[in-house]
C-alpha cells in the first residue's frame, strides 16, 4: 500500500509557478509528493479537474494563483475563488471532504511562502490519511 500521499498543485503561470521556480532556485524544501500542473491562470481550473484528481487518487489538491488584485489577467483569480466556493459547497452537501482542497494566493516573489504552504499542506494531508474517494467500494 502507498504510504506517502499524492498532492496535485494547480499553479498559475504568472505567480505561483514562478514562486515554485524561485523556491527551487533558492534551494528551499518543497514536498516531493507534490505534482504540479501549470495553468495559465487559476481561473483555468474547472472544478471538474479537481474532482477528477480526487477520483483518480489524489489525496489533496492545491490551487494557487496571484493575490487578489494582482492577476495577470486583471480579474481571473476572483472568478477562480467563486468557482472553488461553489465546489466546496457541493462537496459539503455530499459530505466528501472539502478540507482536502486548498486555495492559496502566492505571488512570484514568495518562494519562501510557497515552500512553507506546500510543506504545511503535505503534513496536513498526511495526518488526514488517504482520501476516502480513492477507495470507491467495489464490494461493500
Amino acid at each position: 500500500m502507498q504510504t506517502e500521499p499524492t498532492i496535485i498543485g494547480f499553479l498559475c503561470n504568472w505567480c505561483s509557478y514562478a514562486a515554485a521556480d524561485l523556491a527551487g532556485n533558492s534551494k528551499l524544501e518543497v514536498p516531493g509528493n507534490l505534482t504540479t500542473i501549470r495553468v495559465m491562470c487559476s481561473s483555468r481550473v474547472d472544478p471538474v479537474f479537481i474532482l477528477n484528481a480526487y477520483f483518480q487518487g489524489a489525496d489533496g489538491v492545491l490551487v494557487a494563483g496571484c493575490h487578489p488584485g494582482d492577476c495577470h489577467y486583471q480579474t481571473g483569480n476572483y472568478y477562480a475563488r467563486r468557482r472553488l466556493a461553489l465546489l466546496i459547497k457541493i462537496l459539503q452537501t455530499f459530505d466528501i471532504e472539502p478540507k482536502r482542497l486548498r486555495l492559496s494566493w502566492i505571488s512570484a516573489s514568495e518562494g519562501q511562502r510557497f515552500s512553507e504552504i506546500t510543506q504545511e499542506f503535505a503534513k496536513f494531508i498526511k495526518e488526514a490519511g488517504p482520501n476516502p474517494l480513492k477507495k470507491k467500494p467495489f464490494f461493500e
Partner: peptide, 17 residues
C-alpha cells in the same frame, strides 16, 4: 450567473492570504 461575475471582497476565508 454567479460564476460569470464576482465581487472584490467576498469568500475571503477560502483563499489563503
Amino acid at each position: 450567473i454567479p460564476i460569470l461575475t464576482f465581487k472584490i471582497n467576498e469568500f475571503e476565508e477560502i483563499g489563503e492570504e
